[in-house]
Design a protein around this nucleic acid. Structure first.
Lengths: 235, 235, 235, 235
DNA sequence: AATGAATGAGGGTTCATTCAT
DNA sequence: AATGAATGAACCCTCATTCAT
């Protein structure tokens, strides 16, 4: 439930005091600070329109320092994407493993919680970033597919198929169902970093509410009407 | 329809003036050719990463000519977006006006046909473009909202609400329902121009099938189970 | 006999007058003007220490213009070396072909005249340039060998061997003789563009005189004392 | 006769504090190691194209340490050149002082041995370095002239003039003769560090042989044919 | 109207030098 | 004395835009 987000980095950390190992400690934190800055700017302005010096300045260092940690702007982009997506899929898998309820509940919980977390965190921007930049940097595509799309697809597809096999869900193509479930979530993330910034007054302004409604609608469409209504199991 | 021409300086003008006409027609089509070229390249590489000269070359003219028609690269971007989105919304509204069937059928037909057309056409790329560039060019946001988001929302929301009022649909918040219906369609368009190019072997490789499945799932979730099942009306 | 040197380019050619085809004519001359500027600066300061903008400014154009004609600074270097060495070897070969006198006279004339021309012209700087830069740009080595070293060696070696066969010269290894003849000439060129600039008062300050003395000394060491003294044939 | 190469290893054997001694010895040798590294790299790549950090790394120290011993990269260059040229001229003068034979023999021995040593040692690279960098660092010129060119010229010029006065040599301008003798030797050194690295298969690949042939040719050209053949004195 | 040569500000990257540790 | 993280000026190269033809 707790988001392991990077705490806000302070650009002017302890100038005079506690200077003993400050030198080393800074070095250890620099890459993450640069990645955070880069993510924010790449998501906001796009990769090409972001100047390397801006990234450095936002991370509180000078232009040259950026290049001590990343060989080029492009490598920084790749690192940014890699860093933000790797850990989260595993977290979702864990949640699925030890879940008690029905398939519908499992689906609802996983999607609601996992996506809520992503949406709250900076990682949500990665979707916009990948969408905008894959065609210019095809190496990103392969990584994103291997690390994000396929595991996610597999995880959710398995739940759907289990529900079908158990007679809980209607017999529908699992891959399409997963897309119907997930694509609006991705759009929510994308929206948060594009139109959502410019036009906050809108139906997507309360994403948590939409997630709930979306799950209700989809699970209602997915479950068999008969014996075991997923959202109100008999006592 | 004809553009005001400067007097023909061609000394050996043919009597029928077929060449002159071809020339004049070229001139009239220039802006559209430039817009087409710009759309393709902006969608592919992003606005900042596309060089003005590339656009010109793809349109078959020289760099300087581009600036005869558009004052700057940014104005070209704005024209591109405006041009591709204006007409399509009206077409959808027309279809809704004289539709015979139930609300579910109406919804299915409108969504299936309208989005299929968009997905097939170049206009699908505009979604990726808007997503990637709104934050850099906020004027785009307002236009896009006024011309695309709001009309679309109003149109579909009205159908949903009519269905609810008619007892055909469950009583759900219309705005969320519309989003559940539409956001995956938008993602389909985005996908076509980003990941879909890099990784064609995938579940979204047959978008028409997905659209069908998505509509089935959503309409099943939307309709009341009782008297009038939308997808199989009693004779 | 006449040096086909590039005339001094005027950086501000005819601003108002004769503007008809000035545009095109400039374009045709630009590459040569840039090559001249680049040669002068590369020879003076070395390749790495010369800024591309300096080259452009010396050629009377802006930084960007340089890159309209040469893809990179390195390509400019390669073009500079190629351009200055190709034609001169052929000129020497011509002179050898239709020479009337003895081998000693032939040798003296070829070396004296050819090297005097090179020494007077800007091309002399190429030797310093090649010496300083081959190890950084190995492609230069192959070109220089194929186009300069080997043809020169072959040309002069053939004369020496002819002289030996005719009983005019002592029987010495021709390659070493050629080096004894030629290496001081190369050094003369190098000197002109390195130490010679800093310390003009010196024994090499009159290179023509040195060339004469060098030829006399070497030909005296080369010729057989007996029947036909090359530099003073009997009546 | 003895090569004043990198100085000796250790005069001080100490009881007990071996590590401290090693450390101290390292410290004493640091400047020389840095000079060696700098010479090698400056000769190979040129001054401007050599990074200070490369020099440090090749000497086995860190970037900062270099600046403990040399105030700037340029001062390092000057030290490199100074250090390699000072001692050798004196060695040649010694050899001349106590030489028994004729002037021709003296000339041959001095040139052959001195230049062979230089050519074998790292010092040979200094010629290339001076040639390439004097114009950027004019202070080098004065030093090089005072310490290398003039002493060498004086030394050899004196021998030649002595030979002329003794009736052993023809009456030629001594400065030109010295140049004819010496310039090819300089070129040999230069060649070793420029083209010779790229194209080893060549007539200069056996420099010792060339030196012999060059001396034979030049001394033959220099000596009077008559009473006292220099290279085969009668018993 | 169309061209394309020319410009020069701008951005990615390098590297000599400094300084806190 | 030694390190190596950090800096920022400098340089190569690009590209939106202009303008003479």
């Amino acid at each position: 439930m707790s988001l392991p987000e990077t705490p806000d980095s302070d650009p002017d950390a302890t100038p005079g005091a506690a200077a003993a190992t400050a030198h080393r400690r800074r070095k250890a934190e620099r890459p993450q600070e640069l990645l955070d800055a880069a993510l924010a700017l790449f998501v906001e302005k796009g990769f090409a329109a972001t100047r390397a010096e801006e990234v450095a300045r936002r991370a509180g260092v000078s232009k040259g320092t950026l290049y001590l940690y990343f060989a080029s702007k492009q490598e920084l982009l790749e690192a940014v994407i890699r860093e933000r997506l790797s850990s989260r899929i595993a977290a979702a898998a864990d949640r699925v493993a030890d879940h008690p309820g029905s398939c519908a509940e499992l689906l609802r919980d996983v999607l609601t919680q996992w996506w809520s977390e992503v949406l709250r965190s900076d990682a949500s921007g990665v979707f916009k970033l990948v969408i905008a930049e894959v065609r210019n940097f095809p190496e990103i595509a392969e990584f994103y597919f291997r690390e994000v799309v396929e595991p996610g697809q597999r995880l959710l597809g398995a739940i759907v198929e289990r529900g079908i096999a158990a007679g809980e869900f209607r017999d529908l193509p699992a891959d399409s169902v997963v897309h119907s479930l997930v694509l609006p979530m991705v759009m929510l993330c994308v929206h948060k970093h594009s139109l959502g910034v410019c036009h906050p007054a809108e139906a997507l302004s309360d994403p948590q509410r939409f997630i709930q409604q979306h799950m209700d609608l989809l699970l209602h469409g997915l479950t068999l009407p008969g014996p075991a209504p997923a959202e109100a199991p008999l006592p």
